[in-house]
Design a binder for these strands. Structure first.
Lengths: 224, 224
DNA sequence: ATAACACTTACAGTTGTTGTAAGGATGCAC
DNA sequence: GTGCATCCTTACAACAACTGTAAGTGTTAT
C-alpha cells in the first residue's frame, strides 16, 4: 500500500491525520523533529506528503518549494487559515492540493486517492522548468513536443537535471557513465554531448546545455 | 496556449467562466447544445474541461465518467450545491478537481494551471484499470513496476487498449500493424503475441491478453 | 600566435529488434 | 479419442539503431 508522510507540528492533529490514513490501510509515518525536515522526508521516500503550512522554524511554504524541486511525489497542503492568498501561493509553489483544517476525513482520503492515482503516472519523471524527462525511457517532453533519447544521451541529461543548476564536471560524468575516466577515450563525452544537443534541437530545445570551459557542463533554463 | 472547454448550461455563468479564462490568454470554447456533449467535447480535443455537474438531460456525473474513460485531459468539476457527497462522487469518477460556485476567478485559474501543469506529463498515456501505457515509448506501468516494450509489441497493446473491452480481430491487427494481411506471414502476429505476453509477464502481468478462438484477441482486466 | 580545450563528422563493432521457419500444443467437431 | 484447424513457442538470420573510435576542425584564453 502507498506510503504517506505527515508533516504537522500539533501533536493532536498529527495523530488524527495518522489515524485517518491508517484506518484506510496506508502506511503512514510522520515527522517528529523539525531540524532537518527536508532530509527526513526525502529519506522516507514517501508516495505522498501531507504538509501543514504553519510550521515552527522555516516556513512550510519554503519546505514545499524545496521538496517539489527535488522529488516527484505529490504534496497536499493543509492550513488552519482559510485565506485565498495562502492557497494561491501554495499552488504556485507546486503544491498539488490545498485543504483547510478542520477537514472531513472522507474529503482528505478522496483527495489523497486522487493524487496517488496520478502519481503512478508521473513517478520517475524529472522536471525542471518546462523540461520533463522520463528516466525509464529517456523521453523528453517540452511544450507539447517530445523526443526519445538514446541511453547514453538520456543518462547525461538525467545527471545534468539532477544537479541543476550546478555545473557538473566532466570527471563526474565519466564516473557515472563509464565508471571512471581511465580507460575511455576522453572524446566520447563530447561526441555524446553533440548527439544530445542535436536530439534536443529536433523539438526546439536550444542552448540548454552550457559548456563551462575547463569546469564541465550545466543546464540553463530559458525564462520563456 | 492551452485549450479549455467549458460545459455549463447557465448562459450567464458560462460567459463569466469563458471571460475569466480568456483574460488569462487561454483558448476557450464552450458547449452550446447538450444533445451530444460527449462527442462535441472530444471533437474539440481540449487540454482541460470545466464541467458543471448540474446539466440538463443526462447527468454531469455520467458525462464525467464517460469522458474520463475515453480521454486523458483533466476535468475540473463545478457545482452550485456544496455537498461533500457530490465531491466524493465526482472525485471517485475520476474528476481531477472539484470547486463550488461561486468561485473566485483567481482560485479557478490557480487550480486550472495546476491541472494543466500535470497534464503535460500524462498526455499520451493510456490507462485501463491498473495498466498504463505510454504510447510514445511503449513503457507499461503496472503497480509500481514497469517495462519498456518494443515497437511492435507496444502497438499491439495500444490497439487492444483502445478497443477495450472489445475483441479485436486478427485482420484488424494486421491492418493496423502491417497494412493488410496479404503479403505477410500469418504467423508473425502470433509470434509477437508471445513476445508481448512474455514482456508483460516480467512485471507480473499475467493472463491479460485473452485469445478468442477464431475471433481475435481481447484484454481482460483482473479485478484486484 | 599558440596551446589547450571543445566540437563535429564518419565509420565500424555491437546490440537489439524484426520477420521467417519449423515444430509443438491446444481446442473443437465428429 | 481421432483428426483437423487454430494457436503457441523457440531458434535463427537479416536489418536497424546505438555506441565508441578515430581523425580533423573550430574556439577560447593568455
Amino acid at each position: 500500500m502507498s506510503k504517506i508522510i505527515v508533516i504537522e507540528d500539533d501533536v493532536y492533529l498529527r495523530e488524527e491525520l495518522v489515524n485517518t490514513f491508517m484506518k484506510k490501510g496506508y502506511s503512514v509515518s510522520s515527522i517528529s523533529s523539525f531540524n532537518e525536515p527536508e532530509k527526513e522526508i526525502l529519506d522516507n521516500n514517501p508516495d505522498l506528503a501531507v504538509l501543514d503550512i504553519n510550521l515552527p522554524g522555516k516556513s512550510g511554504f519554503e519546505l514545499c518549494k524545496r521538496l517539489k524541486s527535488r522529488a516527484s511525489f505529490p504534496i497536499l497542503v493543509l492550513t488552519a487559515r482559510d485565506t485565498l492568498s495562502d492557497e494561491l501561493y501554495a499552488l504556485g509553489l507546486g503544491a498539488d492540493d490545498f485543504l483547510t483544517k478542520p477537514c472531513h476525513p472522507d474529503r482528505l482520503i478522496a483527495r489523497t486517492q486522487r493524487l496517488l492515482r496520478t502519481y503512478v503516472k508521473v513517478r520517475n519523471l524529472l522536471q525542471t522548468g518546462d523540461l520533463i524527462l522520463d528516466i525509464d525511457t529517456y523521453k523528453v517532453i517540452w511544450k507539447n513536443a517530445h523526443v526519445v533519447l538514446s541511453d547514453t544521451e538520456g543518462k547525461i541529461l538525467q545527471i545534468l537535471l539532477e544537479r541543476y543548476p550546478s555545473v557538473v564536471s566532466k570527471q563526474d560524468l565519466f564516473l557515472k557513465l563509464w565508471g571512471g575516466n581511465e580507460y575511455v577515450d576522453e572524446n566520447i563525452l563530447q561526441v555524446n554531448m553533440t548527439r544530445l544537443r542535436k536530439s534536443l534541437d529536433t523539438i526546439g530545445i536550444r542552448n540548454i546545455i552550457q559548456t563551462e570551459r575547463g569546469r564541465g557542463y550545466r543546464l540553463e533554463m530559458s525564462k520563456s
